[in-house]
């Protein structure tokens, strides 16, 4: 997104864009990011193994609980990721204005669209230089919303709908998410969609990591260290 929103009254855009570092991601937001990374990793691996379990373990059933532990890890990580996501939505209200970028696309701004176009051209190797961004660039923001926000919401809804089947009729999970199952047809369909959702997120993660590394190298601002320390570093002091 363009920079002007970040300006204090009286500041000129030029001045901000010449700054070398801006504090973008506040601590709770960074914590949320890395908690989510860890949980989604656990969810992806355990989820994959729920649908395609490991080779059978030897011995008596009473001495083993492998599938039980895998499912337990999945459900625990599912709760963590969900609570973190709710916390993230809360942070969009109370955090700085970058905290809202994930959820609110400024589609009403002409500038956003033209910068989106510029960013697409940059990715198609048509634009020579990228623009500077304090928060997300418009393309990144759009991708974040379509892949992450939508994908995660989908996984939480289908995940808790599946969870409600074990929790039983009348459980809060059933009352809140139980309606999802008939929406998809039946339980088996929800399983299939939940699994497709995992692949959707895998594709997001691949792209996300690639783009973060690439931008870190090729764009005019820092990315990876920003999500660690919170500060956006600019590599040059040319405006725009």
């Amino acid at each position: 997104m363009a920079l002007e929103k970040n300006l204090a009254p009286g500041d000129s855009e030029e001045k901000v864009r010449r700054q070398t570092a801006v504090y973008v991601y506040e601590a709770p937001l960074r914590l949320w990011h890395w908690v989510t990374v860890l949980s989604v990793l656990v969810l992806g691996v355990t989820g994959f193994l729920i649908g395609r379990p490991l080779p059978s373990v030897p011995g008596e059933a009473i001495d083993n609980y492998l599938m039980g532990y895998i499912r337990f890890a999945h459900f625990s990580a599912g709760y963590v990721v969900t609570i973190a996501f709710i916390g993230r939505i809360y942070w969009a209200f109370v955090g700085n204005h970058h905290a809202r970028e994930l959820f609110i696309l400024p589609v009403h701004r002409k500038r956003w669209w033209s910068e989106l176009w510029h960013e697409i051209r940059w990715y198609l190797f048509l634009a020579k230089t990228p623009k500077k961004y304090i928060g997300h660039n418009p393309l990144g923001q759009l991708a974040m919303f379509c892949f992450f926000v939508v994908g995660m919401t989908f996984m939480i809804f289908t995940g808790f709908a599946l969870y409600s089947e074990g929790a039983g009729v009348g459980s809060w999970q059933d009352q809140v998410f139980g309606w999802v199952i008939p929406l998809f047809g039946q339980s088996q369909d929800v399983h299939t969609w939940h699994r497709l959702g995992m692949w959707f997120l895998v594709i997001f993660i691949m792209t996300h990591i690639y783009v973060a590394v690439r931008e870190d190298i090729m764009s005019r601002q820092s990315l990876i260290s920003t999500m660690v320390g919170g500060w956006r570093m600019f590599k040059d002091d040319r405006p725009d």
């Binding site: 649908g51 699994r195 497709l196 692949w199 895998v202 594709i203 690639y210 690439r214």
Partner: peptide, 24 residues
């Protein structure tokens, strides 16, 4: 099944990323 669909899609995206990285 979902895995074949997902892995194929991930493979295509992966190849795209590799090509894009090379050009970059």
């Amino acid at each position: 099944n979902a895995d074949t669909v997902g892995m194929t899609a991930a493979g295509v995206v992966g190849a795209g990323i590799a090509a894009h990285a090379a050009v970059s």
